[in-house]
Design a protein around this nucleic acid. Structure first.
Lengths: 150, 150
DNA sequence: ATTCGTGCAAATGCTTTGCACCCAC
DNA sequence: GTGGGTGCAAAGCATTTGCACGAAT
């Protein structure tokens, strides 16, 4: 089973559980987010879709993305900004965290395989059913450190 | 050296570096946040301070808290909400992460001593100067799981 | 027919900012 | 006196929502 069928199954299951009607716009947004690697914002999605389907409203994008977050298809991040960042919660993607530079805002991804073990430990310990995680480090990146020296 | 002198030193250093003047209000907010364990919101601080100093404006609280975040005295969290949550970034506090129930919104803290090692590894690997981190797990808590069964 | 999905614009809620005034240096 | 600190109200910005209409069942 590859990643996208896995996610599609999740979407279909969610649609059934919530008695959703089929919607071309929502399906189109869904297909589009599958093609994105890394993070994106609502506005990026909206800009892209609006080129192909100019009548779409940004509210529809908000509603769709919110639904995908609820369905645990997407993970929402707020890296200190007020704006939301989203990324696919694909189980067979590499587990990763984020390094955020608080000076230039750059976001670097890094693999963090250690997290699975910690997650399982916490699940047992707190009797929580965990379905996503975030590991974020904040600091100053090399480039900004060098700029400071000058 | 205990935790609060550590933080006070951080505050003083920041004040000097940024040529801040002394401010009774900012200092009072500073002292107040030191007494709080766990997370708080801007509004909670404002409500508390306004009882003692009714003339204070909420903008002052925002400005002070933002400054403390910039000084790395506070860590800002956004647990999916639009509202910001804050907590002290006290180095000799126990390193901890958060478990967030996406159903009832409950936030549980847990120790995560493993993180220091990971942090150091990433610092070396990416040449980042890391000064704070977040580890968050999202899922459904025991109580909500039990409610679902019924 | 009924109810969900959508566009639009208004509303919301947190946060920031411009301005006039006050206060520390 | 100069420039930071503050209260107030207005503005900003991302996000949500009420409403009327169109589309799916």
């Amino acid at each position: 089973m590859n990643g996208s069928t896995n996610i599609e199954a999740k979407y279909q299951a969610y649609q059934q559980q919530h008695n959703l009607r089929s919607s071309k716009r929502r399906d189109f947004i869904f297909k589009h987010i599958l093609t994105i690697s890394g993070h994106f914002t609502i506005d990026q999605i909206y800009q892209h879709i609006a080129k192909i389907d100019p009548d779409i409203g940004i509210a529809t994008v908000y509603r769709a993305i919110k639904l995908f977050v609820d369905a645990n298809i997407l993970i929402e991040h707020r890296f200190g900004d007020k704006k939301g960042f989203y990324e696919i919660n694909q189980e067979n993607f590499q587990e990763h965290g984020h390094l955020i530079c608080r000076q230039c805002g750059k976001i670097v991804e890094y693999p963090i395989p250690e997290i699975k073990e910690i997650q399982q430990k916490k699940e047992r310990e707190f009797n929580f059913k965990i379905d996503s995680f975030k590991v974020e480090f904040f600091g100053i990146c090399r480039e900004c450190l060098e700029k400071q020296k000058k």
